[in-house]
């Protein structure tokens, strides 16, 4: 029974992806497929962080997007003065630091509090982060430098793609592979995945639950930071709270598609949501929707999944 339902989810997923790609190729600009995959991967990374934190702390982390925003902000501040690579490392470092600080100052004192209390607290952290960005910076959007200064274009499978984006896609693929290896092969990765089910097993491995909680938040913050620094330069630049406003809901939708528990499901969900948004933005049938059709479509996807299939498409049947 359960296996059948899991299969069913996979079949639906495959069908959805095929349909989306077909719609895109038939109606929209083909380039939006590339944008969809890139932003979708960023959603995926953010969603991975959400799932990790949900599995270990049992809470929806509404500050997840801010890990990315803070990283982008740091990248923006640093990239004038230091080489791009160092700026990137600095940005990720700041994100991780923020993750650890949030875990220590907010999550740990509320360790035994009900999960909704913690949720409100993380939302508060998000607002504080946005407020501080407005306070110290300005409320306007700024472009963030890209890794490659030149802009060449290639044609791959009939789709025009810039070297920027090609590089980005490559980096995303490598990162996804690294994460898969980390969670499947390394002791720490396995411990993190196992911690939610059996705290004692993790203790036996020599990692305390509390320490693991810090590690999970740091890792989630790193993933959030990655999502930010990879995608934001491509999608319009820094603005206070940019990832919370533009990325958090799609990332949650991605995580929900994965049933809030499955890491590959969350990542794949991210790509699906990214492509759905791209379709909504470029396909002519959605032209009449006021404002941003992508936002509306993602909301509809979220509602449908929550009402009709709460266990997600790729999560374990429950």
């Amino acid at each position: 029974m359960d296996r059948l339902r899991e299969r069913q989810g996979q079949v639906i997923t495959a069908a959805v992806i095929t349909l989306l790609v077909l719609v895109l190729l038939a109606t929209g600009e083909k380039e939006s497929l590339v944008i969809g995959v890139i932003t979708g991967s960023a959603y995926g990374f953010l969603a991975l962080g959400l799932v990790l934190i949900y599995k270990s702390s049992g809470v929806f982390n509404f500050a997840q997007g801010e890990f990315g925003t803070v990283a982008v902000y740091t990248l923006y501040l640093l990239h004038f003065d230091v080489p791009y690579g160092f700026a990137l490392l600095g940005a990720l470092g700041v994100a991780v630091l923020m993750g650890v600080v949030v875990e220590r100052l907010v999550v740990r004192p509320l360790f035994d509090a009900p999960r909704v209390t913690l949720l409100v607290a993380t939302a508060g952290v998000a607002l504080l982060s946005i407020a501080v960005q407005i306070w110290f910076g300005e409320a306007t959007a700024r472009p963030v430098g890209r890794a490659l200064p030149t802009l060449d274009r290639f044609t791959v499978l009939g789709v025009q793609i810039s070297d920027q984006r090609l590089l980005l896609l490559g980096a995303l693929a490598i990162l996804a592979g690294l994460l898969a290896w980390f969670f499947n092969k390394t002791n720490l990765g396995l411990a993190i995945l196992g911690s939610s089910q059996e705290p004692t097993a993790t203790e036996l491995m020599g990692i305390s639950v509390k320490r693991l909680s810090t590690i999970v938040w740091a890792l989630a913050a790193l993933l959030g930071g990655l999502a930010g620094v990879l995608a934001v330069p491509e999608t319009g630049g820094f603005a206070p709270g940019v990832l919370t406003v533009a990325f958090l809901i799609p990332a949650f939708t991605a995580a929900v598609l994965g049933g809030m528990t499955s890491l590959p499901g969350a990542f794949l969900g991210g790509v699906i949501v990214g492509v759905v948004e791209a379709v909504a933005t470029s396909a002519p049938i959605f032209e009449d929707i006021p404002g941003s059709p992508g936002t509306l479509l993602v909301f509809v996807v979220l509602l449908i999944v929550l009402v009709a299939r709460p266990q997600g498409l790729l999560g374990k049947a429950g």
């Binding site: 809470v59 929806f60 509404f62 999960r115 909704v116 949720l119 406003v245 958090l248 809901i249 949650f252 939708t253 929900v256 929707i289 006021p290 404002g291 941003s292 059709p293 936002t295 509306l296 993602v298 909301f299 979220l302 509602l303 929550l306 709460p310």
Partner: peptide, 18 residues
Amino acid sequence: GLYFALVTLAYGLVAEKN
């Protein structure tokens, strides 16, 4: 619970953007 909070957050965004 948590999921309802998520839905309302998304709804707020839809109001803002649409």
